[in-house]
Design a protein around this nucleic acid. Sequence first.
DNA 1: CCTAATTCCTAGTTATTAACTCGGATTTCA
DNA 2: TGAAATCCGAGTTAATAACTAGGAATTAGG
Lengths: 149, 149
Amino acid sequence: MILSTKGRYGLKMMFELAKKYGNGTMSLKDIAKNQELSETYLEQLISHLRKAGLVNSIRGAQGGYELSRAPVDITVGDIIRTLEGPLAPSDCVVDNEPECAKAGGCVTRPIWEKIMDSINSVIDSITLQDMINDLQKLNDHKEGESYCE
Amino acid sequence: MILSTKGRYGLKMMFELAKKYGNGTMSLKDIAKNQELSETYLEQLISHLRKAGLVNSIRGAQGGYELSRAPVDITVGDIIRTLEGPLAPSDCVVDNEPECAKAGGCVTRPIWEKIMDSINSVIDSITLQDMINDLQKLNDHKEGESYCE
DNA sequence: CCTAATTCCTAGTTATTAACTCGGATTTCA
DNA sequence: TGAAATCCGAGTTAATAACTAGGAATTAGG
């Protein structure tokens, strides 16, 4: 029941871009360096984020990536669902699966639905701007910045 | 971010036993037949449930399994966490990992914590008895019983 | 006592997915 | 023109999930 690296790395990436928002683009190389992650792997992830319309890219030398809209308008849910797909604890609650639609008497499905709803309501309520604000508060108290997975 | 078959099958198993609670034991063979799942695989799962004190076993011919306490006293969370481990979206929120404890400035960890808390509060609020009651309501409206994953 | 039915235990095997790499095409600034 | 970057699709490797196998221990019933 762990989130894959797609969602976790992806969120870190987007947070990097959020901090830089309004100050031009950032290259994947720099993002990868800052977060100490594989550049070629991040490339795959950001490709999905771009196709989902969350980041803009500028090709060629001096190119890079930037958020497509303000950090306040991008939620953690936008990012994670783009990279992980729906956060359903069971396939049966994704898209009203046909075989599940038949199962009118299913007792476990309502449970998976409640779990999914509660996860979504958490991640949809947090924006990149919230994360920036939290970082600001942390920095008021101590120097340096660090991350975990 | 899907629950593995451990948690899903395990919950189904426990629900079988819950319906039978107070009327003797049920053999693994019957549970597996009812749910159309592999008996040898379920054996592994129920072994953990037994060690966690959620079910009692009676060995030998005519033996089987039964809930160790009333369905109202067993939550979905008890079952799922036993079989899946903590439902943490990231390893870093499990047991206050040492390298994470250092990371006082981590911005993503609070998010994983909120997700985990919200999942736990859902699954801890549902008991096997609730599921039985829900089934009863469903059966008031239609014949037959079915499940999905 | 013997046998069949059951739980118990450990170690495998297989299938699937996650995580990451590679090679090269395309674009663009300087 | 060349270096720096994004873009794209396919391939590889490592880890884990899902399930199997074989047999020991236990116990009710004949």
